[in-house]
């Protein structure tokens, strides 16, 4: 069995003795979770993940039935390590572990523990089954959780615009913004999920990421033209702001989302309303790592917002130029 170590720091390799773990960055975790290799024991450094992201990660690890996983918890982020075993973990390395603590004998014991199948039994009773894969919007089952891309698209300074433009013109502007969202949905096979008087939340399947981001960037590049031609603004440029994250969401049909309690939805609304600036796109880090490298190179360095790392596409500027 191959051993892999998911961490941001090289220093953790010192914990291993007689083993040469393959080092992987937290970015690669999503790919491993999507298609867990059977012959792999994964040690995950929780200090490299970020405390707020841990509950969601544990849920996803728990859902990945084929995956053999273990936890290195240097910062003691987990108050109840036993709960990890209930969720399917095979090993727990606390902050007291010294150099060479994880050796071939320990791995053998871990595998023997896995072979007993106890963890599988616990999993099937106490934890939800592997997440169903996205097939189509019509085939989604209410109440089940799905891994989806969530796009927040908001009208910047909506209240100010409403005051300056009046209710009628603001309604037309909002209808145009909805038209933009609908175009994105049509082009990338999405679904408008929740909307209110100043923002829209649309869902897309994770594979749409790069195409969707390209379209969002194109919207920002053309914001002035959109303001003039679609919003019909004459005095100012109307701004949209966007945020994108990948989340596991409990599915409810559009219009029936009022009872959903979800950290992911709260988070993207907080991100869109408290953090995002006009004419930028903020990407939660798990999305940023899956991007086409050309797009990733355009992002600013990560900043923390409510416990998650967020990277920003800072938009465009316009200037004239002198002749040669």
């Amino acid at each position: 069995m191959e051993v892999a170590l998911v961490t941001r720091t090289k220093a953790l390799e010192l914990l291993f003795d007689g083993l040469e773990p393959r080092r992987a960055s937290p970015v690669e975790l999503d790919a491993l979770l999507a298609e867990p290799p059977a012959e792999l024991l994964l040690y995950i450094d929780f200090a490299s993940i970020g405390r707020r992201a841990l509950p969601e990660l544990i849920e996803r690890l728990s859902a990945a039935r084929r995956l053999h996983w273990a936890v290195i918890d240097r910062a003691r982020s987990i108050s109840d390590p036993a709960a990890l075993f209930h969720a399917g973990a095979l090993d727990y390395i606390g902050p007291e572990a010294t150099e060479g603590f994880i050796n071939p004998q320990r791995v053998e014991a871990v595998l023997a523990f896995a072979a007993r199948g106890d963890t599988q039994g616990v999993k099937s009773k106490g934890h939800k089954a592997r997440m169903p894969a996205f097939q189509s919007w019509n085939s989604m089952v209410e109440g089940k959780s799905y891994e989806l891309l969530v796009l927040y698209l908001g009208i910047w300074d909506a209240e100010g615009l409403r005051t300056r433009l009046g209710e009628g013109r603001f309604s037309r502007l909002k209808a145009s913004a909805l038209g933009i969202v609908n175009t994105l949905i049509q082009e990338h096979g999405g679904q408008l999920w929740i909307s209110d008087d100043r923002s829209f939340l649309a869902l897309f399947q994770p594979e749409a990421l790069n195409g969707l981001l390209g379209s969002c960037i194109s919207i920002l590049a053309n914001m002035r033209l959109i303001s003039y031609e679609q919003f019909r603004l004459e005095q100012e440029v109307g701004c949209l702001c966007m945020a994108l994250q990948r989340s596991t969401l409990p599915w409810q049909k559009p219009g029936q989302t009022g009872t959903i309690v979800s950290d992911a939805i709260n988070y993207i609304y907080h991100l869109g309303r408290k953090y995002t600036s006009p004419c930028v796109i903020d990407l939660v880090d798990d999305v940023a790592h899956e991007l086409n490298p050309r797009f990733e190179a355009l992002l600013c360095s990560p900043e923390n917002f409510e416990g998650k790392s967020v990277r920003r596409f800072a938009g465009f500027s316009t200037t004239g130029s002198a002749p040669h």
């Binding site: 920002l220 590049a221 914001m223 002035r224 303001s227 440029v237 701004c239 600036s277 006009p278 004419c279 930028v280 355009l298 600013c300 360095s301 920003r312 800072a314 938009g315 465009f316 500027s317 316009t318 200037t319 004239g320 130029s321």
Partner: peptide, 19 residues
């Protein structure tokens, strides 16, 4: 007229942002 990417350092607005 010309358009260019906002460099991360311009994020808070040295250049005229597109909006």
């Amino acid at each position: 007229y010309a358009i260019q990417l906002c460099a991360p350092s311009q994020r808070n607005g040295k250049a005229r942002a597109a909006w």
